[in-house]
Structures are given as C-alpha cells and as structure tokens.
Design a binder for these strands. Structure first.
Lengths: 123, 123
DNA sequence: AACCATGGTTACCCCAAAGTGCCTACTCCC
DNA sequence: GGGAGTAGGCACTTTGGGGTAACCATGGTT
C-alpha cells in the first residue's frame, strides 16, 4: 500500500483502482461471496489475480476474509467491511456517471455481463 | 481511449485515473489555467507528462484547450468543460472519503501542498 | 549572436502491474 | 489409486504507463 498522496482523491483511487477491483466490489456489494463464486462470476480472471486483488482489498480494510472449517477443503467467504460499504455511494455515483457518458459515446460500450452498481441504490 | 468496460465505475476510472490527473483536475477546478501556471503548481511534473495528461483529458471531453495568439509564443489556457464540472461532486466525495481514511491510518499521509477539492463545495 | 520564455514533440528507457503456467495441500467419492 | 473440488503459492514473462533528455519553432531581450 502506497502511503503518500497529494490529495484524498488519489488515496481513494489507490483503493478502488485495479483491473478487477470494481467488478469484485460490485459482486461483494450484492452479498458475501465464496472464492469459487467469484471465479464463476468473473470467468476471465485467473486464480492468482483474484487472490491478489482480494488480498489488497483486505489489506486496505475494504473486504474481510472469513475461513470456515478446520481442515481442507476450506470454505472462504469474502464480504464488504463497514469501510467497504461506506464506499458504496461513491461507487454508485461513479457508475451512474460512467454509464451516462458511455450512452453518449457510440464508440464506447459497457458489457453489462452482470448487475452493475445501481442495485445498491435499492438496498 | 479504451472503449470497452464492464461497468460504469471502470469507465469513470478510465477518465480520472492517471498519475497527475487528480491534481490537474483539482487546479482546473479553481479556474482556467495556463500551461505555465500548471507547471508552477505541479513542480514535479515534466513537460511531456503535463501535455500527455492534458491531451487525454481533452480527448475524454473533460477539459477544453484554448489557444490565444497566431504565432509563438502562444498563450494556451485549459479549463473544465461542462462534462468536467459534472465530475466535481464525485471528486469531492472521493476526496472526503480519502481524507477521512488517511486521518485514521497513522502511516498514511496526504501532502496538502495545495487546496484539495473541498473548495469546490463552497464555490 | 546568445539566451530565455512559451508550448510543445520525439526517441528512448525503466519498472511495476498484469498475465501465464505450474506447483502444493487437503478431503471426499467412485 | 485416481480424479474433482477448494484455496492459494511461486517463478517467470509481458506490457504499457511513466520518466528523461533532446529537439523544434517563434519572438523578445540583452
């Protein structure tokens, strides 16, 4: 984790930017998820990248990792922390802004292969 | 400009993420700025990076570039477009979230070498 | 003539993020 | 025994964002 920024925006970007983090946060926004569920939801992600991104989010206090079972095969569940949920409003606004912008640029497309962030609005 | 995203959040991140973009947007949030003013405000940025980041922001429709004078030395002024100003609220929220988080993590510091984004709130 | 200020561009290099492939360890079930 | 499912580690390569330095063009100043 980088420890010096020029303003709060960079600090926030340091947490949510990462190739897979928006998608991961989107899924975890729905409900806690097991590792295998996340892999199923994000078919293109590799095991290494999933673990890595989740580790970074955990280190940043955005998600929590819970291990169930004393011996393998473990059941590992990831869920948003309170800090992670506090990002929700920002993510929703970014989602709305991005969607609006995409709808005005014909050459830009968003693959709505899953729910997106607006579901958080309805709670 | 990348033209495919998985959700609106990624689309927004594609616009505002970049090593110098948050700082540039912060300065342009105050008022239109000349190139040399931006270089003075961001002493560590190189000419190339400043031009590059501004070009990307211009291509994304976030800032507008105005050239005054027919022959060199030109006077070049950059200012936020309406689309850029529409990002203001998101940037302010990200700034607030990041600042709050930094204040709770002792090892994380934010160099307040300039105004930040909260001034937009009063603007 | 030499130099500075202005606003760039171009060529080149570096490194961290991202990606690929293979390995571990454990259990259950056929 | 052997394969599937679960979770993840390690070594290696690739790639693209960022960085340095040099150069262009113009006109004013000393």
């Amino acid at each position: 984790m980088k420890e010096s920024y020029h303003n709060g925006v960079e600090a926030t970007l340091g947490v949510i930017s990462g190739k897979w983090k928006p998608q991961i946060l989107c899924y975890l926004g729905n409900r806690p998820q097991r590792t295998c569920d996340l892999r199923q939801a994000l078919p293109a992600i590799s095991q290494k990248m999933l673990t890595q991104q989740l580790r970074e989010l955990t280190a940043d206090g955005i998600v929590a990792r819970h291990v169930y079972g004393e011996r393998a095969p473990f059941k590992v569940v990831y869920e948003l922390t309170a800090l992670g949920r506090s990002l929700g409003e920002i993510l929703v606004q970014m989602s709305v802004w991005g969607e609006q912008r995409a709808s005005q640029l014909p050459e830009m497309e968003i693959q709505h292969d899953h729910a997106g962030f607006t579901h958080i609005l309805e709670g």
